[in-house]
Design a protein around this nucleic acid. Structure first.
Lengths: 256, 256
DNA sequence: CGCGATTTGTGCACGCCTTCACAAGCGCCT
DNA sequence: AGGCGCTTGTGAAGGCGTGCACAAATCGCG
């Protein structure tokens, strides 16, 4: 495949099965498959079995096959999947055939790091603009981009065709920023501020909270400690389950 | 309804209350409840209804009640939950009554930001040590901590009683770092490197991949765009969406 | 002291996701 | 050409999580 229809255009028809609405759980795993596939491609693999790709992506092979089957069959029985073809397919489904412009709001500690993170550029995105509300930060240059004042968002959003907004401000400012992003037509937001955003229907928000991740780990740590702490002594508590918890698939929990 | 633990339990873990093994989905939401509760406490609320807390945390009230019931929490029918008590309960279950020591490995772009992130300190953790493999970075002081060489990990891990390891290295180095962390007894790892870590059973790994989050958003963006072909709703959502009120259930749209 | 308003705790049904197990399909070797 | 081994794609079953709807419990007030 090579010629897919251009995204923004209404015209569809054509051979490609349009966009099947994939299960959310599958969508969340596709990027992981994609990363693993790129690794395989770089190391010279031309095909890969579901077993091989699954282990490279850290999932169960049956799950992987089912995920891929959702976006049409592109494997060959007895052989496996064509790496290059699969990469194209997944990139298309994820909408990565066009490099989306990202606006980053909040150039503090974390914002600085995000602005300099090359993982964005190498995986389908372009940081197109940086914003901050603090006049003291406006004008600063980071990684070749100049920090603009948040008030310039409306103009810049149009100029740069901003598709995704990243919020890296302190929590108290996050909702206002989200409102501003929504106002200029952004319908996808990645929120690093530790707070709940409320947005109109049709706008997707994903949240990343580093402290929450640690707290989840802390829970498991706490539980592991309380289980191993009392081999046979008093305490009792709930009897230890033998196998305890499997850690086999830690990613699972993040769920979506 | 069981009255298992005494909530306070700040002191020693001697009494070892039974840790109910909560559903993973519940564990993942507790930190969010906790954050919302702290906000409520700061604004003077002494009690809160499940409805109130649920909306503050961005979830369904029935779900919240079920989550809390799993940890045998004490709400009062007709009244609600005691904010302070609930905070204690959740912090205890999450193992936050002791401030866990975190080791951060990889002081690059992202590592710098993490080292300076005060959200860790304010939410139950203490960054106890910074490591890097690059001699050029060793010795640098960040936020009051000196970067040590990764070879010092074994000694420092013991001295500081490291409980959690955070990996913020480039992907190629991540597995080796994980092995080293495991070797010194760390059983909880937060991995920011875009790769799959393999660790022994009993070790928990959580992964945060910023590019993956963007790619998931990209998928939904792509799908929304391909749907806009139908109704004449016109993409002019840009027109005056008053910032401020939002009327939806943002959680709905996203998986998590 | 009893009644009504309010809110929690939960039984239940539904739907999503995971996993197993296997038939169908493909390439290679004889 | 035919058979054999390997791998995909999927039907079915089971588990988990969600949300509804309601009984039980508690407070405030007359």
């Amino acid at each position: 495949m090579s010629q897919h229809r251009h995204p923004g255009a209404p015209g569809r028809a054509g051979a490609v099965p349009a966009l099947p609405d994939l299960p959310e759980a599958t969508v969340a795993r596709l990027p992981e498959y994609l990363r693993a596939l790129h690794n395989l491609a770089e190391t010279g693999h031309e095909t890969v079995s579901s077993e091989g790709l699954a282990s490279a992506a850290g999932v169960n092979s049956a799950k992987l096959r089912k995920d891929l089957s959702h976006l049409g069959s592109y494997g060959t029985r007895g052989v496996g999947y064509d790496v290059a073809l699969l990469i194209e397919q997944i990139e298309f489904v994820l909408g990565l055939t066009q490099r989306r412009a990202v606006a980053l709001v909040g150039v503090g500690n974390l914002g600085h790091a995000l602005a300099g993170y090359d993982g964005f550029a190498s995986r389908g995105f372009r940081i197109a603009a940086l914003f901050d509300a603090d006049p003291g930060r406006v004008g600063e240059e980071i990684n070749g981009l100049v920090v603009r004042h948040i008030d310039e968002l409306p103009r810049v959003a149009v100029e740069e065709a901003i598709a995704i907004g990243v919020i890296a401000t302190p929590a108290p400012a996050a909702q206002a920023v989200a409102d501003q992003l929504v106002a200029v037509g952004v319908t996808s937001i990645l929120n690093f501020a530790p707070c709940v955003l409320s947005v109109p229907e049709g706008v997707d928000v994903r949240k990343v909270d580093l402290a929450i991740e640690l707290q989840i780990l802390s829970f498991h740590e706490h539980r592991k400690a309380s289980l191993t702490a009392l081999p046979a002594t008093g305490g009792s508590a709930l009897t230890a389950l033998p196998g305890g918890l499997a850690v086999t698939d830690p990613q699972e929990a993040i769920g979506t």
